[in-house]
């Protein structure tokens, strides 16, 4: 119980930091860009393509902006505490290091949640303006994006627990890019021709990637929306559970690294 109070205290301070440092102004700006650019892009295509464009573009923008926020906030989260030396007074309090990391992570998830809600609101507004009915599957798509962002931010925290912000940012973004290709690599591995057949020596590498990296394509249902294929709640729940498993592993690894660190 006390542990939960401490974790939530760190989480609410992390959230307050973003709010006070005007991170949300940037978010509103992002929402405005989404609205105007969606409307503008949809103006450029013929009328019967407009619906498809605002659907696709909106989802892409929410996902892209979310990943950018997750990487930037995530890699700076621990680094800023070290750089500003605030970590000394915080970790000398009755607070375990894992509580600190969990609190930071939950605070960041709150920021991402608000970000996703604001951007989704802007997207729904554009859909409304373009006479596209807001369907339940859009909400499911947004939930899945949030699941993906929870993994990306946990990766960012893991790297930032031992590396510099620039390297952590590069590694995290790299894992996001590879994660989005895991499905494709998996298909290549089972195919009777292609890269892994012509170059079998790199097959173990492909297998390792599909086993270690998270399959982030699970969280992208843009194609299903376009083809009007049903996305079930069970699928959403399973994907979110998959995200939770990765988050638990990543935060546990970050804690292991952080536990051994000296704060000189």
């Amino acid at each position: 119980m006390n542990s939960l109070i401490r974790i939530l205290a760190v989480a609410s301070n992390t959230f307050r930091e973003s709010a006070r440092q005007r991170a949300f102004i940037g978010l509103l700006l992002g929402a405005l860009i989404l609205v105007f650019s969606s409307l503008l892009v949809s103006e450029l295509v013929v009328y019967d393509q407009q619906r498809r464009v605002v659907q696709d573009f909106g989802l892409f923008f929410i996902s892209f902006a979310g990943v950018v926020i997750a990487v930037i906030v995530g890699v700076l989260l621990v680094y800023k505490e070290l750089e500003r030396k605030t970590i000394y007074s915080l970790l000398s309090k009755p607070l375990f290091r894992y509580e600190f990391l969990l609190g930071k992570y939950i605070g960041m998830l709150l920021v991402l949640l608000i970000g996703t809600v604001v951007l989704s609101g802007a997207w729904f507004l554009v859909l409304f303006v373009r006479d596209v009915p807001v369907r339940l599957v859009f909400l499911k798509a947004v939930l899945l994006i949030f699941g993906e962002l929870s993994i990306v931010s946990a990766v960012a925290i893991l790297f930032s627990s031992f590396s510099t912000p620039v390297l952590s940012g590069i590694f995290t973004f790299g894992i996001f890019v590879v994660g989005r290709q895991v499905y494709f690599i998996d298909e290549l591995l089972t195919a009777s021709k292609g890269l892994f057949v012509t170059a079998p020596q790199i097959r173990p590498l492909g297998e390792a990637v599909t086993r270690i990296f998270p399959d982030l394509s699970l969280f992208d249902v843009a194609r299903e929306i376009l083809l009007e294929v049903e996305v079930s709640w069970l699928y959403v729940a399973q994907s979110l559970a998959y995200a939770l498993c990765y988050v638990v592993i990543l935060i546990a690894l970050a804690t292991l690294v952080f536990q051994r660190r000296d704060f000189v």
Partner: peptide, 28 residues
Amino acid sequence: VGYLPEQPYFYDYLKPSELLEFFGKLYG
């Protein structure tokens, strides 16, 4: 134990009462 680090830096977006509120929660 209470600890004052050398050249202390705290969350500069907080008021002193908010800082103490935050740390007070950690002490339960």
